[in-house]
Design a protein around this nucleic acid. Sequence first.
DNA 1: TATGAATGAGAGTTCATTCAT
DNA 2: CATGAATGAACTCTCATTCAT
Lengths: 221, 221, 221, 221
Amino acid sequence: MLNSESKQALSKSALRRKREREQRYQTILNAAEPLFARKGYHQTSIESIADTAEVSVGMVYFYFKNKEDLLIHLLDEIGFRLRSLLGAEFEKAGASLKGFELAGKAFFEKFCVPYPDKAVILYRESVGQSDLVETHRKLIFDKLKEDVIGALFRMKENMGFRFQSEVSADVIVISILGIYERIAYQYIIWQERSIDLKKIGQDAVAFLVGGINSLCIMENG
Amino acid sequence: MLNSESKQALSKSALRRKREREQRYQTILNAAEPLFARKGYHQTSIESIADTAEVSVGMVYFYFKNKEDLLIHLLDEIGFRLRSLLGAEFEKAGASLKGFELAGKAFFEKFCVPYPDKAVILYRESVGQSDLVETHRKLIFDKLKEDVIGALFRMKENMGFRFQSEVSADVIVISILGIYERIAYQYIIWQERSIDLKKIGQDAVAFLVGGINSLCIMENG
Amino acid sequence: MLNSESKQALSKSALRRKREREQRYQTILNAAEPLFARKGYHQTSIESIADTAEVSVGMVYFYFKNKEDLLIHLLDEIGFRLRSLLGAEFEKAGASLKGFELAGKAFFEKFCVPYPDKAVILYRESVGQSDLVETHRKLIFDKLKEDVIGALFRMKENMGFRFQSEVSADVIVISILGIYERIAYQYIIWQERSIDLKKIGQDAVAFLVGGINSLCIMENG
Amino acid sequence: MLNSESKQALSKSALRRKREREQRYQTILNAAEPLFARKGYHQTSIESIADTAEVSVGMVYFYFKNKEDLLIHLLDEIGFRLRSLLGAEFEKAGASLKGFELAGKAFFEKFCVPYPDKAVILYRESVGQSDLVETHRKLIFDKLKEDVIGALFRMKENMGFRFQSEVSADVIVISILGIYERIAYQYIIWQERSIDLKKIGQDAVAFLVGGINSLCIMENG
DNA sequence: TATGAATGAGAGTTCATTCAT
DNA sequence: CATGAATGAACTCTCATTCAT
């Protein structure tokens, strides 16, 4: 009884500890995000992150191996969020072109605009910082590519077309990612005038649909 | 006679000086390029640049205000080279879709492949280093946009179409730049397998031609 | 009990920390003093200060913003010590000429002679180093002026005299400070032969008493 | 004849050269003075001096051994000028107290006020720069002391008094120099409010006359 | 767990001085 | 005489990381 009680107590406290740990972890990540995004990765010191998160410097190093590791976790989290977001949109639309439209819309309206700091970290602050960070960036882009390629292939099955060449699918996907990245960089990160993002998004979708059509050949009359 | 001779001598030596100065300037820039591209901007010390260029540290500071200034000059030079290159291709093709094809081809074959270091600096090492560098990056992209938009509008005049919306031209141009940037990053900078760049390029051209067609509406039947 | 004990322990360790911090701070200041005084402010490197204090370079920057800040703190400390010293002497003497004599004696015997490094820093090494240092120097001199003027005015009340003009009090005080500064510079800093400072001091007091008498007119016959 | 002609020509050109050299020398000194005085000795680069003087850096090193040497020559020149100035005033007054009054007046009106840069260099910028500079400063002060002591002794002969002690003469002279230095620093260099220097000067003279009287005992009843 | 003082390598930058031309 | 590009030692300062408490 006593044993079980103490066990339970332990497990309760262990749970609380775990929760606290995860909270703390997130607090640090949340503190780092705006600092990295606004002052820049190199211009942000561990101390300022610790201060913002209201923890000690030592704690940052308890939760993250080093500064690079912190950036990588932040980056991974951002990548995961973006994938989930886009995945859900493709899901909604079934295997149709509609998915590309919804995903594009969501990219701006549910990612770039509400979380510009995340976009900045993904597209600017994590660029060229180190081999390891670059590896993670590549992984994120690869996963995104996979997701979009998956949607593309499901659409292919569904609609019955074939690709112009064996690289067409890759080219389509990379092009789509490139288009959105550049638009985000230009209009969100560089904040070039307060443009009508909705219109931009619509035309971008039209553009990429045109592009897709060019590389996907309907199988028969 | 003697006077004129000495004058000439003077002008000769002055000329030589100027030439030497420009040479030295280029030597430093040439030394910095591969270092920035391969070890990264932050991981490259002024000393290592000076050593590579076989000049003293002081000389680097004689020709460039500081490290950032060195990067900016390098970046500007790269931007200028790229613009010249693409400009020449558009020129060749006259006001036709052909220009976009040639420019795309040239981007890979005359820029990314022969000068991967330059591509790395333009697309990776100059990203998010400082406000000033970012300003220069933006300027370069703006100029490129202008160039491509110019070609687009000349084509518009020539072929007699209109844009789907008032942002269509911008979207087309940004999309094109985004597509090429992402392909370059994926296949040149990340060196994802030694893919058949020629095929990639062809499909990319097909994709963007499809995109352009989607946003450019022929004026009459 | 245990709780209270651990609390006490905490407070003890916190106290010890504080003490250690202040000790370290003083250690650095104490290391800098002779270096600045003997090799000169500019000829003294932060590294040499750190070495002498047996701390790392980083620690110097932990306790002081920069080299200038270190000098300023040293200077302020010296200024404070000198004021306290002179203030005590004036206190001892009540509102009489005796105070000027005691203060003068103390200036040499309790400041310049036992702490020549401090005199050197106050009168030589802190001169013309930067606007900020100069501001602090001025503040120290202003405070000293205030102190001496206070003593002068108390004496005035006591003895019933008036000043020859509205600037007389200022002139008296500045003259006294100037006389002592120059004597200190000549005989302590420049170490012009090992003169009989006692005699010098006596004559200086006689000189300045004569000066004071010239500018303070007894109110009635 | 020919010989003499060429000799003459040579001597003419040699003269012109000498004149030019001296001019150039002065030009550099004149350029350095305001720079040292306003930006500070250490904050003034040789290049900026050369630029201001409109000569090359090499020329500065042709006329002066190094930066320190330049400061020393400037300092010596300033010292010489001050001595001449004060000497002339003592001369005017003959062997009387009047001389101290005239010299004091001249110190402000003919030195500090019209040439504040010179005062700044003498009393601030040359302080504690190096052993050699300090030696020259000491030499200047020693010469000034000698001059004033000379005047004092002539007055002694004339008026028939004796000094209270064997250090009295030194104390008087050092006190006078100290008084004027501190007043100059306070009101000219620190520019403490635009005070009535004339009144200050008058009271200072009264003060020091009182001081002198205290240490000079009339020989007979 | 938690702290935050301590470390110290390393970077950028300056500038007095030299010397080939 | 005159130039001014070239040198490179020396300095200040930063900050990611560690570790005794």
